[in-house]
Design a protein around this nucleic acid. Structure first.
Lengths: 365, 365
DNA sequence: ATGAAAGCGCTAACAG
DNA sequence: CTGTTAGCGCTTTCAT
C-alpha cells in the first residue's frame, strides 16, 4: 500500500504551526431546512412544502419567491425526513452474490438505469455466497424501508431465506431463481440453451461430456443438469455423473476442477462450463497440453465481448443479462406502484447456442 | 420481451370469481414499531431504545424481556427514523460513469465489501458519462444525508462539478481523478505504467505509435498522454498527435477509431489502448487483415482474466482496481469517523507493464 | 435503572 | 390560496 501524504501547503509559510491545527479543515456547509427557506421567503413551512411537492396550487408570485429562497440558500429537501413522514422511500435494494462478477454487474447496471429513470435509487449488497451474510442482509433490508428488492439469492431451496423473503414488508423479485412462494421472477431459459448445447455436442459424436455449472441449489444449475440428462436420455446415451460439478464463483476453483476432470483417463472429450469457469478450463487444458478444439471441445454458458477473439473463438450459449435487469426493474416498479395484477409475474427470457470455433467432431474411440 | 404469466391457481376451483379480486394479494406484514415492543414487554419506549442501542445500562432481566418481545414481534428498528433522529446515516454514495464496466464493477465490489464490514451500506449511481446526469446525481446526493461519497466523476476540470463537490455536507473521495480542491483521492499511477509501455515499444523499434485512452478531462487520460510525450521526447522521437485519441466507454466506438487509425497509410505500427478499446482494436485489426503482433503491436491498459488466453496473449499495463476501492473506502471511513488528519490524503497505487505476446520488434521501414 | 417529553425535517389534514 | 397543528419512529436530555 503506497500512501503518499501531501501537505496542503497553503499555510506552510507561517513560521510556527499556529494553535489551531484545524485550520485546514474543510468547513462542511450546514444543512438548510425548510424552516429557513420559509422565513427567507416570508411564508409558512406548508407553502414551501407545497412548492417542493407541487401538491397544491400556490400563487405563482409566491412560488417564485420560494424558489428563489431555495436557490439562495442552496436548499435541498431532506430525503430522510420526507421518507419518514411519507412512510415510503424511493430506494430499491439489490442483493447479488458478487458485484464484480460480470454477469451480475451488467444486470445491476441495467437495473440502476431503469430505476433511476423512474426516480428511484439503488442500494447494492453482496452476499459473497455466504448463507449467514444473506440472512444478515435480508434482515437489514427489512429495517431500511426499501420500496422493493431485486435479488439473486444464493440458493433457492433454503427455508430460512424463503421465509424472510415472504415476510418482507415490500415486494421482491427474483433473478434466475425460483422459490415455492408467490413471488415475481425473471429468469433466463437456461434449459433450452443447455439442451441445444448438449445436443450439438452429441451430434458431433461426443460421448464423454463434462458439465461445470452452478449447484443444484440455484435454478440455472438445475436447469442445465436437467437439459444435460434429457439430451442424453433422448438418444439413449449414458453419462458419467462424476463429470457434472458445480464450482463457486471464485476464479481458480474452476481451474482445479477442470484440471482434475482432464487429468484422469478416460477424460471428457467435451466440456460445457459457466462463463467464468470456462477460463479455468482453457487454462487447465493448456497446462495439460490438451488442444481445443482438437482434443477437447468447449462450450461456455454466457457470451462475452472477447469470446470471439479467443483462440479458438468460443462457442457459447448466449442470453442477455442487461435485459434480465431491465425487465426485473420494470416489473418491480409496477408492483411498487401497484400497477401489476395480483398474480405473480414470471418472465422467461430466451437463450441460444452461438456456434463459433471451440467445438470439433469427435472421432469415435 | 417474452412474458409468460402464470395464474396462482389456488382459488381456481371456485365457480365464480368472488367479489374480492384481491384474494391472491400477498398481505405484506405491517411494520412493528418500538412502541408495540414496549407495550409487549411492559416497559417504556426509552428502555427499548436503550436495549437496541446499548447506550445505557438496563437490568439484565428487563433486557431479556425486551429482546424476547422484539423477537416475538419480528421487530426491526426503522433505519429511516433512526437516521432522522440521529442526523446521520450509515450509507455511502458511489458515483461512477458505468456500473457494468468491468474496471468500475470490480472497484465497486471491493468498496461494498469494505463498507459493509464497517456497518455501512452503499448506494450506487451511474452518470452514463453525461454531465447533466452528473449534476443531477450530485444534487440528489446532497439531499440523501450520505455519510460520504466515493466517486469517479467524468471529468475533473469541470467547475460546476467541483463546486458541487466542495459544497457537499459530507466528505468525498475521488477515484482516479484530481481536482483543485482539498479533497481525498486514490489514484493509480497511470503515468508510470504508460511510460514503461511507451518505452518498451520504442525500444522494440516502433516509431509510429497510436494511443487510445480517456480524454484529457480525466486524470488517467492526462497521465498517459504525458507519459507518451515524455518517453518520445526523451529519445528525441516525434509522434503524430492525430494518433492520440480518446473514446467513450461504449464498445464499438473504439472499433471505429481503431479502424480509422489503421486504414490510412502510414499507419501506426503499435497501439496502446484502454482495456475495453483494446477489444475494438483487435477486431479492427482482424477486419483489415492486420496480424498482431507481426503487423501491429498492441498493449492494453488494464489486465483481465482472459488476457493471457487471447491470441496472441495480451501485453498489458496492470494495476489493481479492487485495491483502489478498498483503500478509498478505508480513507472515507476514517474521514467520516473523524479519525483522519485534516490534510487531504492522496494515495497513489502502482501500475506495471506485464509483457506477454502481443508486441514484436518493428523492422525499420 | 427507568420513564416522560421534546423534537429530528418534513407532509397532510384541517381550518381559515 | 395560505397557515396552524399533529405526528412519522426514533433517540436523548432531564427528571425521578
Amino acid at each position: 500500500m503506497t500512501k503518499r501524504g501531501k501537505t496542503a501547503g497553503a499555510a506552510s509559510t507561517s513560521p510556527r504551526p499556529a494553535l489551531s491545527l484545524k485550520q485546514n479543515t474543510r468547513v462542511r456547509p450546514r444543512r438548510v431546512t425548510i424552516r429557513e427557506v420559509a422565513k427567507h421567503a416570508g411564508v409558512s413551512l406548508t407553502t414551501v412544502s407545497r412548492v417542493i411537492n407541487m401538491t397544491d396550487a400556490v400563487r405563482p408570485q409566491v412560488r417564485e419567491r420560494v424558489r428563489a429562497a431555495m436557490a439562495d440558500l442552496g436548499y435541498v429537501p431532506d430525503v430522510i425526513a420526507q421518507s419518514l413522514r411519507k412512510q415510503v422511500t424511493k430506494t430499491v435494494g439489490c442483493i447479488v452474490p458478487d458485484i464484480g462478477f460480470p454477469a451480475f454487474s451488467s444486470t445491476i447496471g441495467a437495473i440502476e438505469e431503469q430505476l433511476r429513470g423512474a426516480g428511484y435509487t439503488m442500494q447494492v449488497m453482496a452476499t459473497q455466497e455466504s448463507h449467514e451474510r444473506e440472512m444478515e442482509i435480508l434482515s437489514l433490508c427489512r429495517g431500511r424501508r426499501f420500496a422493493g428488492l431485486i435479488t439473486s439469492i444464493g440458493r433457492d431451496n433454503d427455508d430460512a431465506i424463503i421465509k424472510m423473503l415472504r415476510q418482507l414488508p415490500f415486494p421482491a423479485i427474483l433473478l434466475d431463481r425460483k422459490i415455492p412462494a408467490p413471488i415475481d421472477s425473471v429468469c433466463t431459459d437456461h434449459f433450452s440453451g443447455a439442451l441445444q448445447a448438449t445436443e450439438y455436442l452429441l451430434q458431433l459424436g461426443h460421448r464423454r461430456i463434462g458439465l461445470i455449472t452452478l449447484s443444484v441449489h440455484a435454478l440455472p444449475g438445475r436447469e442445465r443438469r436437467r437439459a444435460f440428462s434429457q439430451a442424453h436420455a433422448a438418444r439413449g446415451i449414458a453419462f458419467n455423473p462424476e463429470w457434472i460439478t458445480g464450482p463457486g464463483f471464485e476464479n481458480d476453483h474452476a481451474y482445479r476442477i477442470a484440471y482434475e476432470l482432464l487429468s484422469h483417463e478416460p477424460r471428457p472429450t467435451a466440456i460445457m462450463a459457466g462463463g467464468f469457469p470456462t477460463i479455468g478450463v482453457m487454462r487447465a487444458a493448456r497446462s495439460l497440453g490438451i488442444s481445443i478444439p482438437h482434443d477437447l471441445s468447449l462450450i461456455s454458458f454466457g457470451d462475452t465481448d472477447f469470446a470471439d477473439l479467443l483462440s479458438p473463438p468460443l462457442t457459447v450459449v448466449r442470453w442477455n443479462n442487461g435485459e434480465v435487469g431491465r425487465i426485473a426493474a420494470d416489473i418491480l416498479l409496477s408492483r411498487i406502484e401497484e400497477r401489476a395484477r395480483d398474480e405473480p409475474i414470471q418472465v422467461v427470457l430466451p437463450s441460444e447456442l452461438v456456434i463459433r470455433g471451440s467445438c470439433a467432431p469427435w472421432r469415435q474411440t
